[in-house]
Computed example of a mutant assay.
Amino acid sequence: MQGPRFSTRAESRWFRAAGAQIVNMTQYPEAVLAAELGVGLVALSFVTDIDADIDAERDGAATGDGADAELVLRRMAQAAPRIRAAIAAIVAAIPDDYAGRRLLPAAAIDAVLAR
């Protein structure tokens, strides 16, 4: 979903009905735009909460508090050492001679940027 924002309960139910198990609000539209511009991208995801607390619903009524920014920020702070370690490992694994692949011809990208 396009973020940053939390899903509504209706959106959460729709995602669940569609078979989604993870809802991410931090890689769209950024991943698509990066690919179109030929910019390399590594996706590192961290699960912070139950989407709109849908697992806590019983008989159609929410029994939990749902996700909020305070909860997400607290869990991210707790996980910061693991997140930093993951980023360091990803960077260390990039070969010195790495060259990204172009998804669009350079001329097409140049034409868009020239506008």
Rank of each mutant, 00 (worst) to 15 (best):
L37S: 06
Q2L: 13
P29L: 08
R5G: 01
I90N: 06
Q2I: 13
R102A: 13
A92Y: 05
L41G: 08
V72C: 01
T48C: 03
D97C: 03
I109Y: 01
A69W: 02
V39L: 12
A77R: 15
R101N: 06
G3I: 01
A31V: 06
R75I: 10
T26H: 01
L103P: 02
A34N: 02
R84W: 00
A111E: 11
D55P: 02
E11N: 14
E57A: 07
V112S: 07
A99K: 05
V23C: 03
W14T: 15
R16F: 09
Q78T: 15
A67G: 00
A69Y: 00
D97N: 03
I83R: 02
E36H: 14
R16K: 03
V91F: 00
E57F: 12
T48P: 14
R5N: 12
D59S: 04
P95F: 10
Q27N: 10
P29A: 12
A67Y: 00
R101Y: 07
R74C: 06
R9T: 14
N24A: 02
G64Y: 00
W14H: 07
D55K: 11
S12C: 12
G3R: 07
A43P: 05
R82V: 00
V32H: 04
Y98C: 14
P95I: 04
S45M: 09
T63L: 00
I109C: 04
R9L: 09
A79H: 13
N24V: 06
A61N: 04
R82T: 03
A88D: 15
G19R: 01
Q78L: 15
R13T: 03
D51P: 05
R74S: 12
L103C: 09
T8F: 13
M25E: 10
P4H: 11
Q78V: 14
V91H: 01
R9N: 12
R84K: 06
A111I: 01
V42M: 09
L113H: 10
V39D: 10
I22Y: 09
R101D: 08
I90S: 11
R74F: 08
N24Q: 02
A18C: 14
E57T: 06
T48I: 02
A106F: 13
E11G: 11
D51W: 01
G100E: 00
L44E: 08
L73H: 10
R115C: 08
A52Q: 15
M25A: 07
R9Q: 08
T63E: 12
A106V: 14
G38H: 10
T8H: 04
A114K: 15
L73P: 05
A77S: 12
I54E: 05
